[in-house]
Amino acid sequence: MTFAVRRDHVARIAVYLVLAAISAFMVFPFVWMLVSSLKPFPEIFSGAHFLPEHWTLHNFASFFHQTNAARALWNSFYIATATTALSLFLCALGGYGFAKFRFPGRTLLFAFVIATLAVPFAAIVVPLFVMMRNTFHWVDTPWPLIVPSAANAFGIFFMRQYMLSIPDEILDAARVDGASEPRIFLRVVLPVCAPALISLGIIVFIASWNGFLWPLVVLPSPQHWTLPLVLRSLQGPPGRTPYDVLMAGSVVSTLPLVIGFLVFQRRLVSGIMAGTVKG
C-alpha cells in the first residue's frame, strides 16, 4: 500500500515536471522577446547574458522613431476593430437564421457553409487581389481586410451552436408582442448571445490583428501598413536587420493581445471549446 502511494507520488511529480517543462517552452519565446527588446544591439548578439547588462528602452523609442509605428498601431487597431464589429454582426445574423428557423434547403445550405471551410485563402489570394485592384480599386484601403471575410463559415457555425441553446419561447414571446424580426434579432438575440459574441470577437480580433499575407498583398504603401508589415519591413538586406528594434516592435504588436488574453482568457478558452466540439 505504501509502495503504491509512493509510486503515485513519483508519477504525480513526473506529470508536474512535464507540464512545467512544456509550459516553460510555451512561455519562453515571450520572455526572450521581451528581454531582447530591452537589450542594446551588441548584447543581443554577444549572447553572454540572458538578462540585459544595460537595460534600455531605446529600442522602443527607435521603433516609433524609425518607422511609421504609431500610424501602423492605429491602422492595426481600427482595422481589427471594424473587422470584428462587422464580422460579429453578420455571423450572428447568419447563425441566427440557421439556428432558429426552419426553411426549405436549410440543411443543404448549412452543409454548404461548412464545406466552404475547405477553401484555403491561398487558393484565391491571386484572383482576389486582381479584383481588389482592377474592379473595386480597394488597394491601399482597409476595405479588403474588413469586407470579404466578414461573414465567414467558422463564425456562423460558432454562433449557430450557441443560439441552438436559446429557448424558442423567448423569441416567440417577442413575436407575439409584435416585435419585428430585425428588432427581435437586435434586442433579444444579440444580448442573449453576449458571451458567444465576446468569444468570437476575441478570435476574430486576434486573427485580424495578426494577419500578414493579405495585408502584405493589398497594402503596398507604407502609410497604410499594419504592424506586422512594419515589422517585416525592418528585415534586411540591404543594411543589417535591427533585431533590437525588431524585438521592441514585436513586443508592441504582441502586448495588447497578451493583456487582452489575460483579461478574457476564460471567455476565449470556453469559446474555442464550445465552437469546436459540437461539430
Binding site: 445574423l93 447568419g94 457553409v113 461573414a151 434579432f185
Partner: peptide
Amino acid sequence: PLLFVAPF
C-alpha cells in the same frame, strides 16, 4: 431567415 443568412 433567408435574408439573415444571405450576407454570407
